[in-house]
Write a protein that binds this DNA or RNA. Structure first.
Lengths: 183, 183
DNA sequence: CTTGTATCGAATTATAAGTTCGATAACTTT
DNA sequence: AAAGTTATCGAACTTATAATTCGATACAAG
């Protein structure tokens, strides 16, 4: 890839995530991103179709870490054993999300958290489909899957807005609140 | 109240809810509301500070029904006994929400459902605070309250978007999924 | 060196929100 | 019924921001 393109792209992403640390997505204008990245207006639009497109790209970047299989260096867990239960998977995702904490707060604050949450849940649905109990007594599987993914996404939002807990703690909260996973 | 004001207000609310049956809140312009209500532009702004203010007013109207104490005429339950458990309260709310189904779909579809959901959860929090179990083993009460309200709001959103279930059925799903209420 | 591609940025277009104000019509009070 | 008050109308205006255009310039790669 052209060095210039890479440079521009990096500048935009850095400017964007920096801005997200101080204000919410909806209150950031394209002009601010352009100024912070120190690039020309048309250059921005040569890289990203719209402002929402930029957010989508950032989300995908975050997700590529969050849903990556390669183990993150957790302090208290050893995941090199090979078989992951749901608790381990959840903890892994939470560790990855913690790394993006500084700008996730800005994405999840206020109105436009919906954009992130929608993408997030799309990805989560794939993962959670297999993990849910096969037999659900009185509840449609459809409803339960929606409930489990939505609750996890909301757990993350709550975590980002509130005092700091460790990923392992959050995992416990979530697994207690949504006890519908197969062993 | 001045007949003219009442007329205008009614026209706006009807135009707005009608539009919400066909498209989502974010895609409705003030101009469309004005045209549909057949009123002057400045008249709209004499009644509502902003477009979001109009949505807020509509939400408050819906909530005043949903959270009303007066029993709705449910088909299968007799609520005249006096003591309501959580299941009864939940079913009652679901019946009231069902009445607003036609335009709730438009409010809850797409991006800006957040505005409704935020108001909704504020009201729900008050109600759910008392109903939750006093002792929660491993989970902060704060997290659990957030989980319970969010899950209820999300249950309603899911309901509005999916095939029709009866309020009693939805209540069962919710109580199964979030079993943290005191008896 | 030459050719293609990226960048710059000022000017422009598009869209929608919200404001202003004078004229007119509908209510209210005396 | 006349006088006074308030609501409505609506066109024109302001403001805000997103997104497009395009010619000039700078950089990269064969």
């Amino acid at each position: 890839m052209d060095r210039r393109q890479a440079k521009t792209r990096k500048a935009v992403m850095e400017a964007f995530t920096n801005l997200l640390e101080h204000k919410s997505y909806g209150n950031i204008t394209v002009q601010e991103i352009i100024d912070a990245a120190d690039i020309g207006r048309s250059t921005f639009y040569a890289h990203f179709e719209t402002k929402d497109d930029l957010l989508r790209v950032l989300c995908e970047e975050i997700f590529s870490h969050v849903f990556s299989e390669k183990p993150h260096k957790e302090k208290t867990h050893d995941f090199s054993s090979g078989t992951y239960g749901m608790a381990e998977k959840v903890t892994h995702m939470l560790y990855q999300l913690d790394d993006s904490r500084s700008y996730l707060r800005g994405i999840l604050a206020g109105e436009s958290s919906d954009i992130f949450m929608r993408y997030f849940r799309e990805h989560l649905t794939e993962i959670f489909e297999d993990a849910l109990q096969k037999k659900t007594k009185k509840i449609p599987r459809d409803y339960l899957l929606n409930h489990a993914t939505q609750s996890f996404a909301e757990t993350v939002r709550w975590w980002m807005a509130h005092g700091k807990y460790k990923p392992e703690e959050l995992c416990t909260f979530y697994m207690e609140a949504v006890p519908f996973f197969a062993d």
